[in-house]
């Protein structure tokens, strides 16, 4: 099973397509969730996800604008996509049968 954190990270990587690396992910997550994300809160789960095989990463060449440091660019593997699909299915099934959540959602989207 994926955790809420893992789900967010996987979705972010898919959202950012080819430019998913630490800085962009941090910014994206901060924008979407509205709270400050720390570097460790991103990299620790990413490390775990990569070990499980849900994502893979490529270490790019160091660039000048990053103080001469390389970046690790992430992409989601097929296995990862499948795990995410299953996860979302279970999640929707569970939440669809709860009316309170629906109205809540609608209200939110209505705004």
């Amino acid at each position: 099973m994926l955790s809420g954190h893992d789900e967010l990270l996987l979705l972010t990587i898919l959202n950012l397509k080819d430019s998913a690396y630490g800085a962009t992910m941090m910014k994206h997550l901060t924008k979407v969730t509205g709270k400050e994300w720390s570097i460790g809160a991103i990299y620790d789960p990413l490390y775990r996800l990569e070990k499980t095989g849900y994502i893979r990463s490529i270490l790019s060449m160091p660039t000048q604008e990053r103080g001469g440091r390389s970046k690790r660019v992430y992409s989601v593997t097929k296995k990862g996509v499948k795990a995410l699909q299953e996860h979302l299915k279970v999640r929707n099934e569970l939440s669809d049968s709860i009316p309170e959540l629906k109205t809540d959602n609608r209200l939110k989207y209505g705004k």
Partner: peptide
């Protein structure tokens, strides 16, 4: 304090956002 695995990229990421 960061893991070897992401020490360099992490510093890079932070610096990028910092600037």
């Amino acid at each position: 304090f960061s893991h070897q695995y992401h020490q360099k990229p992490a510093l890079g990421d932070l610096e990028e956002i910092y600037f």
